[in-house]
Design a protein around this nucleic acid. Structure first.
Lengths: 231, 231
DNA sequence: CCCGTCAATTGATAATTATCAATTGACTCG
DNA sequence: CGAGTCAATTGATAATTATCAATTGACGGG
């Protein structure tokens, strides 16, 4: 891979603490690749040959059941994905597709597993990342099991706002049907949920959503102080 | 803790590979405790003071939202739980209660985090356990997002049967309303789902469920070869 | 600049799931 | 052995969500 790309990847928590020598070994065996939009990177059931690091672009992780599919996560740069499959060396449980043209670093799986064993700092960060990912999934499952769709949307907006340092104006990345799938509802119901939130301090103009009354939205969505948090 | 209890705990994958000296350090600082049924071990929001290892009994991990709650996992012996909260040293996202009288080993959190840093084999097993847990959550979320209740029940039964070496006769641990909550439905709907499965090779007698026609159940539930697997 | 395409919205209806209510049945306690 | 308790079931209804259908609106290509 090109030298110029390395710094931002090396800054990732996952790779930040490892020994320089090992990082060199990993990076020099990896390569960057650019994928066009709507390309499937891998499918459920495949064995992981690489750890993926999204450098630029947008990627969707999704699962399928018959003819339906569901967005499990949206990966934004810069972050790695499918670490759990790599660590367990088990087939993917999710498929991945690019939503936009994306630059992705591919780290050979065998090598990385090997380096993880040798570099304690890297292993610790991998462990931490998996723990954070696990907790993220607990949140998502709780959200799905005990909230209904409009509440999920409300809490999603509050969380997005919080992630963006409290910005009251949110610009959706990707299409609304993607958000619908992420929130576990149909696009039709997302539309209706968005208009329902008009009464609770949310106004929508295309992909631009504004929280006009934060308190009203909080009252409606009842975010959980521990669940609805960034980590 | 008592000497006699150690072997079965030491056999846990998590602790199996670590250095004997470190294991001694961990175990001698830990203690076993017996809790009566229906006791809350900890609540959402508390900081983890211990890693919990269920030695004997049955424990429920659940989340709450207002007046509703939902079973996230049922912990059977012998296994540890809330490793992710311990590793990240963040507040619990789930509460825990005993379902039966339970013997639990409590390992001081600070100590264990310390030993994990020092013992590579233990860290690797912790990492692996978190990866497996993450994948389990991906399965659960997929199940919830793209299957409806009767399908979830059908696949649950198939998976349970598979876990018990293909036994066609299943004895439920715990009450049916617990299973209902785990599967994300009301007890009423579990009742109906169970009778609906009568047409698809399942017969019920109290807490005793028999798969009378495995193929028929598979045809109905359409298990996913990768998703509906034990790891 | 118009047409075709497709995401998004809106309305109507159907399916799924939850809630409320009542009953049954198993088990315990006195 | 009978009363009380509670899980489980069953029926009726309501709420939520999905599906189907039609329309609107934005955008890019010819």
């Amino acid at each position: 891979m090109r030298e110029g790309e390395r710094p931002e990847i090396a800054k990732l928590p996952l790779f930040a603490e490892m020994k320089e020598e090992q990082r060199e070994r990993v990076f020099s065996a990896s390569h960057l690749q650019v994928f066009p939009p709507q390309l499937i990177l891998f499918d459920v059931g495949q064995k992981p040959d690489f750890l993926y690091v999204l450098v630029d672009g947008l990627i969707e992780l999704f699962t399928t059941n018959g003819d339906r599919d569901s967005t499990m996560a949206i990966v934004e740069p810069v972050s790695s994905f499918i670490l759990a499959a790599l660590v367990t060396n088990q087939p993917f449980l999710m498929s991945a597709r690019t939503l936009q043209s994306s630059r992705v670093m591919l780290i050979p799986a065998d090598l990385l597993r090997d380096v993880i064993k040798q570099d304690g700092a890297l292993m610790q960060e991998a462990m931490r990342e998996l723990a954070v990912g696990y907790r993220h999934m607990v949140r998502a499952l709780t959200d799905m099991k005990l909230r209904q769709s409009t509440e999920r949307l409300g809490n999603f907006l509050l969380l997005e706002s919080h992630k963006r340092d409290g910005a009251m104006n949110l610009q959706l990345r990707g299409e609304k049907k993607l958000l619908a799938s992420l929130l576990g509802m149909t696009p039709e119901n997302l539309s209706r949920a968005l208009s329902a939130l008009a009464k609770h301090g949310v106004s929508v103009a295309g992909g631009n959503i504004t929280i006009t009354d934060h308190d009203a939205l909080v009252t409606f969505a009842r975010p959980d102080p521990f669940l609805d948090k960034v980590e």
